[in-house]
Design a protein around this nucleic acid. Structure first.
Length: 341
DNA sequence: CTAGGGTTAG
């Protein structure tokens, strides 16, 4: 009997620096896949499912499906893996379709399967499906563990039912970082800024450590409610936690400063970014510059924006309205101004 | 005991 030594860690292929996630190295994974098939381990349900999962995580969803389709006896875990893969890459219709196929095949979903289905509902705003799954959970007495509860809270929040999300969240006995984050982000996107910030303070009292997603919610709440100083305080707080700001965090801060009409400060803040600002950041700045009639800064933002998204017609309209807003058009000036450009 | 799950700005 061949040992697992077929996959030899001293082999040149396997000895390459190990990536943090499979996503970063689909190439090596395919080498392993090839070896798996040749070594005869391909018929193990564990190996088959791991391969489906691997390809899905590499966003090679077509390969994942191919391996899945070739599994002779698909069990619950195999179905769940494929549904999860579709859900994660945003192919929600495929996720729903496969969930239906799975039930038609007589495979009964468990809480792990339903987390992926609920997550697909949240991503697509499919409240009807989400409610159906929730009813299914209640009817079949499926264990609503931490992950499933969090998925439900997130789904209701994303689908506009913030009261339902809060109700479920309050009923949870154990809440971890992801549960709190879902709730805080949900409150923030629903304009419940006070509640979001209060939830954050309760989270601290409960000694649950916030992460980068938690701070997206907190900063969002500050931006939406115009709390510039509070937002800046949380920004420092985030850095103290050793959380490296991501594009989303910078986006929230730019939004925070721009909404408060601190345009110059927002521009200066963007200058300090160690990562290249994306189109959302430049667009936020451009809109603020337009509103504050700051053509100089607006032009810079507009130029960067057009470099990043030359095919987005909206950007050209924004930039033209920047010039329009600054020229203070009156009846007499109209001709002069238009002749200039 | 080994294969599947939740949170991220506009």
């Amino acid at each position: 009997m061949a040992s697992i030594g077929v996959i030899n860690l001293h082999d040149p292929i396997m000895a390459a620096p190990s990536p943090k996630t499979p996503r970063q190295n689909p190439f090596e994974g395919r080498q392993v896949h090839s070896r798996v098939v040749r070594s005869g381990f391909g018929s193990s349900p564990f190996v088959e499912t791991a391969l489906v999962n691997f390809y899905a995580k590499c966003e090679e969803i077509g390969f994942a499906r191919k391996v899945f389709d070739e599994i002779p006896e698909r069990n619950l875990v195999a179905w769940s893996t494929m549904i999860s893969g579709y859900s994660k890459v945003g192919m929600v219709n495929e996720a729903f379709g496969l969930f239906r196929e799975m039930q038609n095949a007589g495979v009964v979903p468990d809480e792990v399967t339903l987390v992926s289905v609920i997550s697909a509902c949240a991503a697509s705003g499919a409240l009807g499906v989400g409610r159906w799954v929730h009813a299914y959970i209640d009817k079949h007495l499926i264990d609503t563990d931490l992950e499933l509860s969090t998925a439900l809270v997130n789904m209701y929040a994303k689908c506009g039912c913030i009261e339902k999300a809060i109700e479920l969240f309050d009923a949870m006995l154990v809440k971890d970082t992801k549960a709190w984050s879902s709730m805080i982000v949900g409150m923030a996107i629903h304009g419940l800024e006070e509640e979001a910030l209060y939830a954050f303070s309760r989270m601290e009292e409960d000694k649950v450590k916030p992460n980068h997603v938690t701070f997206v919610g907190v900063l969002l709440a500050c931006a939406h409610s115009g709390r510039v100083l509070v937002g800046q305080k949380y920004w420092s707080n985030m850095l103290e936690f050793g959380i490296e700001p991501s594009m989303e965090h910078y986006g929230c801060m730019v939004d925070l400063l721009c909404r408060a009409n601190h345009v110059e400060e927002a521009c200066a803040f963007v200058e300090t970014m160690p990562i290249f600002p994306n189109a959302v950041i430049w667009r936020t700045l451009l809109v603020a510059c337009k509103k504050n009639r700051n053509v100089d800064k607006g032009e810079i933002a507009g130029t960067r924006l057009l470099e990043l998204e030359p095919d987005n017609a909206e950007n050209y309209i924004l930039l033209s309205s920047l010039y329009a807003s600054s020229s203070q058009w009156g009846e007499d000036e109209l001709c002069e101004e238009t002749n200039e450009g």
